[in-house]
Nucleic acid binder design. Sequence first.
DNA 1: GATGAATGAGCCTTCATTCAT
DNA 2: TATGAATGAAGGCTCATTCAT
Lengths: 204, 204, 204, 204
Amino acid sequence: MANQIAGVYEKIIECAKKEFLEKGFLNASLRTIAAAADTSTGSIYTRFGDKEGLFDAIVSPAIDGLKSMFLSIQDDFHSFPADVQKESMGKYTKSRIQDMIDFIYDNYDEFRLLLDASYGTEYQSFLDELVDIEVDYTYRYMKVTGCRSTESGEVSETFIHIIVTAYFNGFFEIVRHQMPKKEAERYVAMLSDYHMAGFSTVLY
Amino acid sequence: MANQIAGVYEKIIECAKKEFLEKGFLNASLRTIAAAADTSTGSIYTRFGDKEGLFDAIVSPAIDGLKSMFLSIQDDFHSFPADVQKESMGKYTKSRIQDMIDFIYDNYDEFRLLLDASYGTEYQSFLDELVDIEVDYTYRYMKVTGCRSTESGEVSETFIHIIVTAYFNGFFEIVRHQMPKKEAERYVAMLSDYHMAGFSTVLY
Amino acid sequence: MANQIAGVYEKIIECAKKEFLEKGFLNASLRTIAAAADTSTGSIYTRFGDKEGLFDAIVSPAIDGLKSMFLSIQDDFHSFPADVQKESMGKYTKSRIQDMIDFIYDNYDEFRLLLDASYGTEYQSFLDELVDIEVDYTYRYMKVTGCRSTESGEVSETFIHIIVTAYFNGFFEIVRHQMPKKEAERYVAMLSDYHMAGFSTVLY
Amino acid sequence: MANQIAGVYEKIIECAKKEFLEKGFLNASLRTIAAAADTSTGSIYTRFGDKEGLFDAIVSPAIDGLKSMFLSIQDDFHSFPADVQKESMGKYTKSRIQDMIDFIYDNYDEFRLLLDASYGTEYQSFLDELVDIEVDYTYRYMKVTGCRSTESGEVSETFIHIIVTAYFNGFFEIVRHQMPKKEAERYVAMLSDYHMAGFSTVLY
DNA sequence: GATGAATGAGCCTTCATTCAT
DNA sequence: TATGAATGAAGGCTCATTCAT
C-alpha cells in the first residue's frame, strides 16, 4: 500500500488558505489550488473528500482549539462558588480573554477564513457555536447568582442569544478589521466593559 | 409603442426573491428564475440589465427607504438644542425606532435577502452605510454634549465604529432570526437599553 | 400612410459607420447603433431590411460611384484607336487615377469600412469586382494592341487576375494605412510605375 | 497517470479545421466541434485552453515552419558577398521559393485558415510578419548593393512596405484561389519576374 | 411607419467531481 | 495512492430579428 507523499498535505492546506482567502469559498477553484500545490485535483479528494472537506481541514483545528479553550475557561469559572463567581467575573474574564486573543493571533488566517471567506460553507456562521456555549453558561451563571430576569420573562432567551452574538461579533472585529494585536487587546478590553455595562442593565 | 408585458416585472421580482432567498445570490440561476416566471432570460436583461441589477431592483427600495428614514430621524434629533438632546435621547430614539421596525417588517424578504443572501453583491455589507451614518451623528452628539472621551484618545474612532456595528448587527438579528414582529419590538427595546448602558460606560 | 421621419435615415447611417468602423461588421450591434441614433432597432429594419442591408446602404454608393467612374475611364480609353492606346496608356492612366483618388478621399470612411470592417459581409472582397473589370479591359487591350502573351499560353488568365489584384491591393493601401492624401498621390504614382514595369515584363 | 485519450487531439484538430474553414473563426462553434469530434467541450479546453488556443494549435506550426524557412532563406542569401547577391538574386530566390510552395501545399488547410478564416484572431494579419522580415532584408540588400533610392528620399519606407505586402498578397493568392500546385508554381515564377521588374524601376 | 420588448438559441467558459490508468 | 483528463451541466449574457401595439 502506497503511503501519501509527505508534505503534500501541508502544501495543499497552505495554497488552499491563500486561494480561499483571496476568492472566498464559493469562487475558489480546486484546480487552482492543486496546481499551486504542485499536485493533482485527485490528491485533494484523496485527502479531504471534497471542497468543503478541504475548507474544513484548514479551519476546524482553529475552531476546535478556540472552542475547547473557551469551554475550559467557562468550566473553570463555573466551578467557583457562586459568590466568587459574582465578584470575580470581570477580572477573571479579562485575564482569560487574553489567551483567546493569543490563540486567534496564532491562527489568524484561519479565523479570517472563517469570518470572511466561509460563505457557502457549514461555517457560514461559525460564531453560533461559541455563542451557544456562552449562552449556556450565562444561564447557569444567572441561576447560580440568583438573577431572576429570565425567569420573570422580562428577558427572553432569544435576547440573551442576541446580545451574546453581538458581543462575539464585536470581538471578532479584531479579525475582520485585521487589527494589529496590541490594538486588538485594547479594543477587546473596552468592548468587555461596554458589554458588561449593558449586561448589568438587563440582568439583575 | 412596445410596452413591457404587464405583470412580468412583478413576477420576475417575486420568483427572483424566492430563488435568491433559497440559494443565495451566487448560486441563484437566472434561467431558473426566468422559467419560474414564465418568461425568457432575455426579458430579465431587458428589465434589470444583469443579475446584480435584478438583485438591486429587489433590494434597493428597501435600503433607500430605511436609509432615508434613518437619516431623517437623525436630522430631527440633532436639530434639538444640546440639552434637549441629552435628556431626550433614550426616549426619542425608542419612539422612532418603531418606525424602522415597521418598515423592516413591511419589507421583510428584502432585508432577509440583504442579510443572508447578498454575498457576491455590492450589498455584501449593507449595514456599513447605516453604521457610517450613525457614527457620524454620534460624533456630532458627543461634540454638542461636550463628551471628551474621543478627544482625550481614550476612545478611538475604530472602537466607536465597532460598537455601532455591534449595535446594528444586534438590531438586524430580528431579521436573521426571523423573529415575529411583537417579539422583535421587545428585543429591540432591550437591545437599546443594553447598548445605551454600554455607551455610557465608554462615553462621558 | 405615415412617412419616415426625416433625418433618421442619415443619423442611422452616421452612427452605423462609427460602430462598424470600431467593431467590424460581425461584432457591431444594431442595438447600439439604434440607441446612438436615438431610434429603435425596428426602424433600422424598416429602412434597411437587416444588418447586412445597413452595411450595404452605407457602402454601396461609394462602391457604385467608384465602379462607374472606373468603367467610364476604361470605356473612354478603349474607344481610342489602338495606336493611341498604346502610346498614351501611361499618361492617360495617371491623369484619370487622380479622379479616383479624389473620389476615395471624398468617401474615405466608406472605403475604410469596405477594407477593414467588411468581414462577414458580401463585400468581404469588394476589390474583386474592380479587378474583374480591369482584367476584362486588359484583355481587350492586349487583343487590340496585338499582345500575344496570353494566346500563346505563356500567361494564364489567372495570373493576370492575380497581378491586377496585387495592383488594386497596393492601391488601396492608401486607405488601409490611412495615408494623408498628398502622400497617397505620390505613392500611387510610384505604384503605377512599379506595376507598369512588371506588366511590361510579362506582356509583350 | 491520466493520459489523454489517444486520437482525440487529432480528431478535434481535424473537426475544428473543417468548422473554422466553413464558418470562420468568429462564427465557428466549439460545441459543434466537440460534438463532431465525439468529445466534450471541456476536453477542448483541457487540450487547447480556449477557442483561440485551438485555432492557434492548428495554425501555428504552419506559420512557424514557414517563417523559419523564410528566415533561413534570407540569412543564407545575405551571407553571400555583395556582388554575388546582386547577380544571383533572381536565380537564388526562385530556387528557394519552391521550398516554400512545397511547404504551403503540405499544409494547405492551415494556410487557408490563416488567409480566409482568421478574422477575430491574432493571426488576422499573419502576412505582416513575413512582410516585416522581407522589408528588413530588403533594406540590408539595398545598403549592401549600394542602392541609394531610399536614402535620397525618393522612395519612402512606407512604399517599400506596401510593395512587399503586395508581393506577399500576390503570392498567397495561390491559397486564396485554391490553385492546383502545378499552376501555382508557374504563377509564382511569373509573379516574381513581375515584381523584380517593378522593383528595378523603383530601386536603383 | 415606429417602437422596443420578447424571444430563445447560442455563445464561450468554468467547475467539482469521477475514474481509468 | 496519484494522476489529471473527461465529463457535461450549468453559468451569465448577447444578439439579430420579429411583431404586437
